[in-house]
């Protein structure tokens, strides 16, 4: 048992997860068809800091929608959110830095590479997804072994 973070068992939910995935797919569809954009969250965040003014507003609307939709989920399905999430502050800072630097370098995360990139059959995204999932499996294995998780 870890001293630094909490480990919580979660039930296998194939149906809910599949339906949620379909809804995410519809989100990708809407953004592509109406706005011609790829739903890559890390890229949208990055661009909201560094892109030209005319390219800024849609990013803020998307991220705003993401946060507002999240609030609906927090209200309706609180058990599905991070409401009671517990970790260690150092683990969170290191993790956040790794995610920020890693997605910044590789230009994508679970959504941009993992969903949109694979859907576009981009070799870059297929490689990136295999690597970040592989790194994830290895990280959890050793983090548990060393008592970090």
């Amino acid at each position: 048992m870890s001293v630094m973070t909490t480990s919580v068992l979660t039930p296998f939910t194939p149906l809910e997860s599949f339906v949620g995935g379909l809804i995410i797919g519809v989100s990708v569809f809407v953004l592509l068809y109406f706005n011609g954009k790829v739903a890559g969250i890390s890229g949208i965040i990055k661009g909201s800091f560094f892109s030209a003014k005319k390219d800024l507003l849609w990013r803020l609307f998307f991220l705003g929608g993401l946060a507002v939709g999240g609030m609906v989920v927090i209200k309706v399905l609180p058990q599905n959110t991070a409401l009671t999430f517990h970790s260690h502050f150092l683990v969170q800072i290191i993790a956040g830095l790794c995610v920020g630097i890693g997605t910044g370098l590789s230009n994508g995360c679970t959504s941009g590479h993992g969903i949109c990139g694979i859907a576009r059959l981009s070799m870059r995204s297929i490689v990136a997804t295999l690597i970040f999932m592989g790194a994830g499996f290895v990280t959890v294995y050793f983090a548990k072994l060393w008592g970090i998780l």
Partner: peptide, 12 residues
């Protein structure tokens, strides 16, 4: 970058 992202994703 993907490897680093995977580490952070897994830790958190």
């Amino acid at each position: 970058g993907a490897a680093l992202f995977g580490v952070g994703w897994a830790l958190s």
